[in-house]
Design a protein around this nucleic acid. Structure first.
Lengths: 144, 144
DNA sequence: TGCTATTTAATTGTGCACAATTTAATTTTA
DNA sequence: TAAAATTAAATTGTGCACAATTAAATAGCA
């Protein structure tokens, strides 16, 4: 087997699937005025209400070079606000606004829509998640 | 279960794994003067020697907006050449150079290195590939 | 044959990703 | 406690991705 043949690659399908999923999300997120990475930030904020940029970066594995301009756009759209932490002025708190909270309603159906559009089922999807999570555990454990 | 919790997402791990894999490739590819998407183009050319931009786009699921500037950089690095097809002048042929072919030697060990760095084994890796390929089949079938 | 529709790349503009550096705040330690 | 080290976010610069538009070539058809 030629290990350098594109069809024998494993990393390429992961890369292709990631972009494919993003493209399936795009038309739905567009209606909400969000990009996929912005949606991930909103997922965190729907769950936690307020987080620091550092915590966001840890959860999403993104650095300030990506997050700072992304958050700037969320602020411009009125979905979040930004304040230097009073406890530690190195930290920046990101807080969800009422407008940001309201978006959650529209997002609730998204996961089901995506499973349907990928023409898969929840069981297969969860198996895939388990396999990928296992691969990511190694990285996670090295990041503590 | 809160389907909008980050930890319950399936699409996020795919996105995270894709970026993680790219970051594992990066230091190795850097020695070869390649980025990960450029490496994918080289994979195709190591296999096929000459392809059109259209064929590249179909294989890698990328459009000319991505490929044109990427190929420009491969040309500048002397790895490929570019010529309008004589048969159909809408098409552009990309041909690998001797310098480009020579790079293949350095790339041969990459897949094994990656499996090792992901701390997984070939069997688990192939299972993951099978699952992802299945999800991508749907898209593939719609693209014919 | 000539006109219309389609196809292919290139171009333009927006938004990530991420390396490397900078600035400011806090922690550690001599 | 003052200097050095570390940490967090912002900044700068490069390279994807991709939507939308443009320009040129070819195909299809009346």
């Amino acid at each position: 087997m030629d290990i350098l043949k594109l069809e024998n690659q494993v990393c390429f399908p992961v890369y292709a699937l990631s972009r494919h999923i993003t493209s399936l999300y795009r038309p739905h997120l567009e209606k909400m005025g969000l990009t996929y990475p912005q949606y991930l930030v909103m997922l965190v904020l729907w769950e936690h209400h307020q987080v620091t940029v550092k915590e966001l970066g840890k959860k999403l594995w993104l650095d300030s070079g990506t997050l700072t301009p992304l958050l700037k756009r969320l602020i411009e759209n009125g979905l979040v606000t930004k304040n230097r932490s009073e406890v530690d002025e190195r930290l920046v708190d990101i807080t969800i606004t009422e407008k940001g909270k309201a978006l959650k309603e529209q997002a609730l159906s998204l996961p089901y829509t995506l499973i349907k559009e990928l023409e898969t089922d929840e069981e297969q999807f969860l198996m895939l998640k388990a396999q990928i999570d296992k691969l990511l555990e190694v990285k996670e454990s090295k990041n503590i």
